[in-house]
């Protein structure tokens, strides 16, 4: 492990060479938008919001997986990046049925706040209006696939932290969707421990506690780092 110096947005910074651009940026209060990344879980690299420019490379690089190197020069903001991030978030809005005004996570939603931070005030792409059925069979939680953005945080937390692997993704492409067990009702799942971690890490109102009304569902994704830390200490 070595300490390296690099430049992010004209700021000279230092970081460890096992850290990602995202980690170093975060440590220095430089905001890079993310949706699938969550501290304490494995890296997914699917949302593409954290793409940044690295000088000397034609391709954009995901900040969540790219490790910092000595002398690296990174730009996290540009008109081009903003256009890309804008369009990707618009894509998410068109892919599902996101009705913020009636959502349990209204005001506590990472998709909503990301859109706001990016300056999105309307969606110019046509909505796809998929037909998806809500699963309210679990005694404590509800899964509303209309609000799912397939970040797979629930899949990862269930597999990596809880160890149950109740959730996974089925199908592919635009037909990808979350399932529990063999695509059975969540309430019938034999593997679910009802621990609720999936609900806590869900960035939107797709997974929520029963009985919550519009805007009442507040998530606590930060608990994960605590669990991770505790586990490390036990080892």
């Amino acid at each position: 492990m070595r300490v390296v110096t690099l430049t992010i947005n004209d700021q000279l910074l230092s970081g460890r060479d096992d850290e990602t651009i995202l980690q170093v940026a975060k440590a220095h209060n430089i905001q890079i938008p993310t949706l699938c990344q969550l501290d304490g879980l494995s890296t997914w690299g699917g949302c593409r919001l954290c793409l940044v420019h690295i000088h000397g490379s034609d391709k954009l690089s995901p900040a969540c997986v790219t490790k910092v190197t000595e002398g690296m020069v990174v730009e996290t903001e540009s008109e081009r990046l903003n256009k890309y991030r804008h369009t990707i978030v618009e894509m998410l809005y068109t892919e599902g049925n996101h009705i913020c005004s009636v959502c349990v996570s209204n005001n506590n939603c990472e998709l909503q706040s990301t859109a706001q931070n990016l300056g999105i005030d309307h969606i110019s792409l046509p909505y796809l209006y998929p037909s998806r059925t809500v699963d309210a069979s679990h005694e404590r939680f509800v899964f509303d696939p209309n609000r799912c953005i397939l970040c797979t945080r629930c899949v990862r937390v269930c597999d990596e932290i809880e160890g149950a692997h109740t959730w996974d993704v089925a199908g592919r492409g635009i037909n990808s969707h979350l399932i529990t067990d063999l695509n059975e009702a969540w309430g019938e799942s034999t593997s679910c421990t009802s621990c609720g971690k999936c609900v806590e890490v869900c960035p939107t109102g797709s997974l929520y506690e029963k009985g919550k009304a519009g805007g009442e569902m507040v998530k606590h994704a930060e608990f994960l780092t605590y669990i991770e830390e505790m586990r490390k200490n036990h080892k």
């Binding site: 005001n107 706040s113 859109a115």
Partner: peptide, 8 residues
């Protein structure tokens, strides 16, 4: 606009 309002 995004400073003062948002979806929902």
């Amino acid at each position: 606009i995004n400073k003062i309002t948002r979806f929902g």
